[in-house]
Amino acid sequence: MARYFTQDHEWIDVDGEIGTVGISEFAQSQLGDIVFVDVPADGRQLAKGDEAAVVESVKAASDVYSPVSGTVLEGNPALADQPDLVNSDAEAEGWFFRLTLADSSELDELLDEAAYEAFVAKL
């Protein structure tokens, strides 16, 4: 399994054809207390860069973009009752959605963990 990041602070874990998407630890720390997450519906077709989810902190709503193209398998059902999982465990239990990748070559355009950390360090 490999993990990639975007410059918009999403992460995606890829296992074969299946990707799991969330927002980074850095992003959750910037957002603060998260009170609601709107995850995409099963079966939704997403193009890379599409607005896939909305995350609401106490102060602001933010769009979460799909790091790759694909078809949504499921949104994280736990976030409906526990949106603060994104605060407590952004890069594992606080995942947003899973999708079937349409084109795994799109992953080449994403950052690996070291490159993302270097990117964040410069912010």
Partner: peptide
Amino acid sequence: MSETVHPPEGLALDPDA
């Protein structure tokens, strides 16, 4: 990810704010 609503008090998600 990007901020879509500018909150009244000016909270910036963007670390470049």
